[in-house]
Amino acid sequence: MRLLTHNMLSSNIKGVANGFPLLIEVEKVIEKQVDFNPDFLKNIFPKIEWKALVEASRSMGYAELPEESPESWMLDSDDFLRKFHHALLELHLEEGALVCPETGRKFPVNKGIPNMLLHEDEV
């Protein structure tokens, strides 16, 4: 699971009001190379919840992203884009879990695939 996916997911258990962002429980992180595409990054940037991305990348052991949400001019900086690219697309949670911030329910991540299916009593 890339952090782009993480940034889009929330816990949708019935009754949960604040299911975002999911906490990450790391067992194994691997890095997977992805072709660098500045246009894609610029397009996706406004859709990203920055704080959630910074925290998620920290829990995956990458602390290079600035704390504050970047100004739009930073998107022209190659250095920034490379870091953003790395955090968003190349960090890959292979084994671990996503934890609902409200209920503590764990959504397991095995072989890089988060399992977001709810149990019967959560629907």
Binding site: M1, R2, S11, N12, P21, K47, G112, I113, N115
Partner: peptide, 23 residues
């Protein structure tokens, strides 16, 4: 290029965060 994300989810109850749109 490998998929950026693959997940198990139910299209009837998609787990996208509230407020996420036009992605």
């Amino acid at each position: 290029q490998m998929p950026i994300g693959l997940l198990r989810a139910d299209n009837n109850l998609p787990p996208w965060r509230p407020g996420l749109k036009e992605v």
